[in-house]
Nucleic acid binder design. Structure first.
Lengths: 406, 406
DNA sequence: GTAGCGGATGAATCTCCCT
DNA sequence: CAGGGAGATTCATCCGCTA
């Protein structure tokens, strides 16, 4: 089975390499060897890299790959986080920040240059109909996206990975940074033959079209690689479920998936499991060692089982603010308890005000009764059509009318 | 009520305009009128624009506003380059040497220049601690984000508006484009005093801190403005709920909210409803007409539904010594932590003594636990009427009984 | 065995005022 | 304007220990 797949990939490569002559990609040496011997050399180079980790600087490694040889790129480049000073949790423990040298850049200009270089090298290695995923955060993704466009990539989607369990914002000065962004792009605007397994994705999504917002937990537990001291091997290991959705969506079994920032090899492990080939670039020996052991332990799934995994359905949690925002309860209107001993004003932000005191429906309910806790949903009522109804009924109505929310 | 709020805003503006002289914002005319007459003129200019739609090109209008005069910007800029008649011709000197389609790159350069211009003009009009929201899709948001960073804005969050009911992808060649992206940014990295109504947002969200992924339906039904023929007045009208969350999160009642691309005035309508002032820029007479009628019909919410509750960190500071002086805690008595692992003696000067070591409730609490810091108010407890109570409760009692002290 | 509790932790651009 | 001190601030999940 394994050998069969390798053979299938080989013939596909051959076909595409012979197409390469038609590509308007500038070649470094204009008077090099003949096209035939170039193709032969390319196949050998590709075969040598297949299912391997190329050790060293990723831009050098990418330039060493044959042109137009990979079907999909998944890249998780440094984010250029620009962290200064430490951060402690409210319990005074320290957050283990990403302070690795590989994430440090002197300026935006430096980061832009680096981004242009690796994207250019990756684009050269992509087949005409290959696509590319890049993942990032607000620190870097806007620069990556703009440079992608400048280089001629064509953005197909931006995709949001919503995290089930992000790290909270400990100082309460921003919104919790609860997502990361992926950009999915084809090599050029006129590349129309890219792979997108629409029907399989739709079938795996309760027959709903796959959306641009994905919901996964972060990588923890047994999946998270640890070193001998029990510390995480890599600071930014991505969940396999995320890679699996990207690879299942945009590649076929036997395809070659390239990861220029291989790290501990999540892309390689998932590619192997899903019956794809991988090529990884990595320079850190510790990461490489961990990745090799990890991938060696992966058993490819049987072909029939290579289906799109579906995110677990979460119990839908409704914020009171959602009901206000949806207009089901008017901002400025009043809530009361069953015996109408207390009245509170509904605020536009979804909090409620008891006199001057502002808080959640639960906190204010508890405060009013002098109790340590209170379920505001069942305690408070509002007036609708002249009748007093419990706001929990409105919550049920909201749940029924707002499908799709996790 | 309306007039009262306007008055409050006026005094706030006056205070900030007088601060403007300290701002390192470059001024176009170096030998203009005196600072005093400039301030006076600025106030007049601002008052004239308040709750108005400035008709014409938004960059001209923004440049006409006084410097450092607005508290919040919400911008929904265009991204369809072909429809943007106001764009200037491409500047060849800015074009990077890439092997790219000239026309496409020229369009990006045009769009970048337009973006730089309006962002620069908006930034000039922002108070030092003002923040800005920009909303966009993958067509433009990466360029906007990169330029924001280049201009010195400091990104606080990227926020995802997940649509409950996005337009499906009919051809099945991409993921359904089910979200748009907002960038929330402060005027500069060192602007730490921006408004973020964390407590109220948390209270409205089941007492969980607000996240960077928001979920709203798109603007449909009665909220969607239609012209006499039943066609939608504006192609990209945003839902009021989206604006409400942004405005509630990042501004206070009486603040000035600026929208450089006012369209049919969603920002103005929501700002008015939430007791904020607005300034809009728009050049299309049809949009302006629709926006004016729409805003005129808006009834502001009562103050209790929108006022900003005092955050904990903004509450009046109380010295522990004050509690001792007031006799709420006896000098010579003991404090203990919850598990009674440590005991300290209260001194008459408001310090506490752990054995021989004397220091503040915070310093001694940190020292006892071997931690770098400690909030002594929540850590230490005292005995009152035979029961152990937290000294933070005493502080609350002190605050309630000594309201006039400054 | 298991339910419950305490501790640890995750790509984070995370305070504010006074001297 | 830099430094120092007061004091405000967290959610979901996993793991290991105890009852």
């Amino acid at each position: 089975m394994r050998i069969q797949r390798a053979g299938a990939a080989g013939s596909r490569v051959q076909k595409l390499v012979s197409r390469t002559g038609l590509q308007p990609v500038p070649r470094p040496g204009a008077f090099g060897p003949s096209a035939a011997s170039r193709d032969e050399a390319s196949q050998e180079k590709l075969a040598a890299a297949l299912d391997q980790i190329l050790v060293g600087d990723c831009i050098d490694s990418l330039r060493g790959l044959p042109e137009a040889s990979v079907d999909l790129v998944f890249a998780d480049p440094p984010y250029n986080l620009q962290l200064e000073g430490g951060l402690t949790r409210p319990d005074q423990s320290e957050v283990d920040a990403v302070d690795d040298d590989w994430d440090k850049f002197a300026s935006f200009a430096d980061y832009d240059r680096f981004t242009r270089d690796w994207l250019t090298a990756a684009r050269r290695a992509m087949k005409p109909d290959a696509t590319l995923f890049v993942i990032g955060s607000y620190h870097n993704i806007f620069r990556v996206g703009a440079i992608l466009q400048d280089l001629g990539f064509w953005i197909l989607n931006d995709i949001v990975w919503r995290k089930a369990n992000p790290m909270p914002n400990f100082r309460g000065r921003r919104f919790t940074n609860a997502h990361e962004t992926l950009i999915w792009a084809s090599r050029s605007a006129n590349a129309k033959g890219y792979t997108f397994n629409y029907d399989a994705l739709k079938a795996g999504n309760e027959d709903c079209q796959p959306r641009s917002d994905w919901f996964f937990p972060i990588c923890t537990g047994a999946e998270r690689l640890k070193d001998d001291n029990g510390r995480k091997t890599h600071p930014t290991q991505k969940p396999e479920a995320l890679l699996a959705r990207a690879i299942m969506a945009a590649s076929k079994p036997g395809d070659v998936v390239l990861d220029p920032f291989f790290g501990t090899g999540t892309t390689g492990a998932v590619a192997k499991r899903l019956g794809r080939h991988f090529i990884g670039c990595e320079r850190d020996p510790d990461y490489i060692r961990a990745a090799r052991a990890r991938i060696a332990a992966v058993e490819p799934l049987p072909g029939a089982a290579v289906h799109t995994p579906v995110a677990k359905r979460q119990e839908k949690r409704v914020a009171f603010a959602s009901l206000v925002e949806a207009g089901m309860i008017a901002a400025g209107s009043e809530l009361h308890d069953e015996k109408k001993r207390w009245r509170v004003v509904v605020r536009a932000d979804g909090a409620v005000a008891l006199g001057d005191i502002v808080g959640s429906i639960h906190k204010i309910g508890a405060l009013a009764q002098g109790l340590p806790a209170c379920n505001g949903w069942t305690f408070w009522r509002c007036v609708e059509g002249g009748k007093s109804i419990c706001i929990d009924d409105l919550r049920a109505r909201y749940r029924a009318t707002a499908p799709g929310e996790d």
